[in-house]
Structure formats: structure tokens, C-alpha cells
Design a protein around this nucleic acid. Structure first.
Lengths: 200, 200
DNA sequence: ACTCATTATTGAGTCCAGTCAGTTTACGTC
DNA sequence: GACGTAAACTGACTGGACTCAATAATGAGT
């Protein structure tokens, strides 16, 4: 028998494989039809598992969306952080962090809004939820770091300012009023607000 | 026959009376058990109407909560506006507007959070929803008026600042992290954030 | 008083997220 | 390689929001 596995058991492998199938199925279906128009049954069928099994891997449909999308947001944050380093002025650097996240969120508007809803109103003890919150935390840290870096003369606590920026992003992306906005317009809208927080 | 009615028809009266019964039933049940633990069936039963009838008056359970709570928020806003007039400094005046709204929201935490969720993610074409949005709009106007009143040297557009304050309130009240906070602590948390927007 | 179009009401029925008692599978032990 | 048992899986079932075809009430016209 060839040495196929590092991890000890078949159990672990099966579990991982199932999780992969679920992730793949959900990713595909959510992308094509939107969270709201996909039933958990469809996902289970596509992943070729029983109805109940699905909920062993994600306790709710919302958690399932977080599971599927967290990686994208983490990547967006990564890109934004890198871009920000190349930019001198604070506002520009902050927007460099903001933009990829907004783009990620708007890949599919309904899914994006659902994601935000889950983040704020979902159960924070669930694993994928807390992963999402962690990404938000890292985003705020990245922004705070930019503000600190640029010595903004102690207008206020950088962490608090970052928190406000986070709130601005959330509400701007989630608001139904903005649901029709193009990405660029939304980014501009957010920029206008943030510019009040970062004096020149 | 005594002159019982100003409005022309029996139809209108019946409808109004039914709406009153629904409002009363929902108010009572929501207050006692919380939105999440009350079924639409219970409300219909208590209001003594058919299951389907309920949804002619409020299209979703969320709308029902808005119907029940909007009046309270409008009243809170009214109080806050009045209080604000008696206060000189901008931050204090803004907080005078903020506090009653937070108090109203925290009367029952779960209901408060559900209300916020409905506001941001509900269907804005529904009547009670747009009423709620109108209250938010008025709140922002009241805050903008305070900022304008106090000539804050053109730090930025008052309307935009008001919008940011609104976002701060929303996220602070809705965040699950803050769900355990006492009203006073929550108000303080919000105050800390707002103080960064209102230089002295 | 009667007709009839319009509007309001109704509750049995649909849909779907999520549960749970029962079954299967993996794996350590003898 | 048979046994025990713990972990994983399953799909029939439940609960609850919401729908809709059928029915009832209203009131305008005659």
C-alpha cells in the first residue's frame, strides 16, 4: 500500500473530503443562484450527502455562506494591506484596504448583504462566524496601523477611528438604499465619509 | 341611530379596528416573550383573526415588529430633540438625541436587535419599513442641525457627519459583542466614538 | 329589496431550515 | 477477525412563516 496519508485515520480523511464537497457545492450554487434561491437540500444533494449531515458541518445556512466566503474576504484583505503599503497619504492607504473588500462584497450583491447580516446578527460562537469576525478585526488593525504610521497628531485613538471606518463600511455596503450602486459609486460614497475622519 | 362615525364606511372602521387589535396583540406578546419566541399564529389568535389576515396588515413578521415599535422610536426622537435644545456643547446635544434612542432600543435587547436587522435588511418598499427609515432620516437631520447650529468651522458636511453617527449607533447597538452591555456602557461606547467626530 | 363587482377574510396547504432517533462506519482491543 | 463503542451519518419529521383558492362582506347602482 502506497503512503497516501500524513493524517492518521480514514475518518479524518472522509470528513475532510466531505467538507470539501460541501464547500464546492455551496460555492457553485451560491454563485450561480444566490444564497436566497438555493435550498440546503440542493446543496446536500449536490455534495452527495444526507440532509442532516450538512448541518454537522455548518449549523445554519448563514454559517454555510460564511464558510464559503471567508477565504475570499481574507484574500481581499491581504491584497488591500499590500497595496496600502505603497501609498503615502493616509486616506489613500485606507481606501486601498477598503476597496478590495467592497469589491469582494459586491461580487454578488445579495450574497454580500447576506454575509454582512450573518456577521452582525449570527451566532458568534459558531466557528465560521468567529473567523469572519476575526477578519473584521484584522481589517480594523490594518487601518489603525496606517493611521498610526502617519502620525495624525493624536486626533483620536487610531483603534477607535478604525472601528468607525468599519461601521461606515458595514452600513454603506448593507443599506438597501445603496443596493443599486455600482462598485465605484459605493467606494466613492465610503471615501467621502472616511475623508471626514482623516484630516489632511 | 346615533352619529357614531366620522369616516364614511363600515369597511374602513372594521379595518382600523382589526389593525388596532393586531397592534395590541403583537405589542403585548412581543414585550412579554420577545419577537423570536412568538409565532404569527399566536398573534393572529390573540387578535382574533385568521392566519392569512395577519399578513394583509403586515407582510412579514419583521414588518409587524416595525409596526409595533416605530411609534416608540418616533417618541424617543422627539424627546431627544427637545433635550438637545437645552444643551450648549455639540457633543452633549448630539448625545441627548442619541440616548433616548438607545434606551428605546434596549428596552428588550433581542427585539431591539431584530428591529435594526429589519431596518437594514428588510424590504424598503413596505410601509412600516419606510416609516422606520424616515425616523432614521429625521434623526440624522436633527443631528445635522445641531452640528450646523454650532458652526463647527467646516470640518465637513454636517449631513455626512450625521450619517456617520447614525452608522456608529447602528453597529454599536446591533453588534453581538455589545449585546451584553448595560445601557449606560453602550451609551458611553457610542459617545467615545462620536467624540472623535466633533472636535472641541 | 335585489344584483353584482369589488374588496376583505380565511385556514388548509406549501415550502424550507433545522432536528433527532436510529443506523452505519471506523478503529482500538483482545 | 470478532467485539464494543464512539464518532459520523441519515432522512423522515417538526415547526413556523407565509400563500392562495375559495368564501364572505360591503356598498353602489337600479
Amino acid at each position: 500500500m502506497p503512503v497516501t496519508s500524513q493524517p492518521p485515520g480514514r475518518r479524518e480523511r472522509n470528513k475532510q473530503e466531505k467538507l470539501d464537497r460541501i464547500t464546492a457545492a455551496a460555492t457553485e450554487l451560491f454563485a450561480e443562484y444566490g444564497v436566497e434561491d438555493v435550498t440546503t437540500q440542493q446543496i446536500a444533494d449536490k455534495a452527495d450527502i444526507g440532509t442532516g449531515t450538512l448541518f454537522l458541518y455548518a449549523k445554519t445556512k448563514g454559517e454555510l455562506l460564511l464558510l464559503v466566503q471567508n477565504a475570499n474576504y481574507a484574500e481581499a484583505l491581504q491584497r488591500g494591506r499590500a497595496d496600502a503599503e505603497t501609498i503615502r497619504d493616509a486616506l489613500g492607504a485606507v481606501m486601498a484596504v477598503v476597496r478590495p473588500i467592497v469589491e469582494c462584497n459586491r461580487t454578488q450583491i445579495d450574497n454580500g448583504r447576506f454575509y454582512l447580516r450573518e456577521m452582525v446578527f449570527g451566532d458568534p460562537t459558531e466557528p465560521h462566524h468567529s473567523a469572519a469576525l476575526s477578519i473584521v478585526g484584522q481589517t480594523e488593525e490594518a487601518i489603525a496601523a496606517i493611521l498610526d504610521r502617519d502620525e495624525l497628531g493624536g486626533v483620536g485613538d487610531a483603534a477607535t477611528t478604525a472601528r468607525i471606518i468599519s461601521a461606515i463600511m458595514f452600513v454603506s455596503m448593507a443599506a438597501s438604499v445603496n443596493a443599486g450602486l455600482e462598485i465605484e459609486a459605493l467606494v466613492q460614497d465610503i471615501r467621502t465619509q472616511i475623508s471626514l475622519l482623516i484630516p489632511r
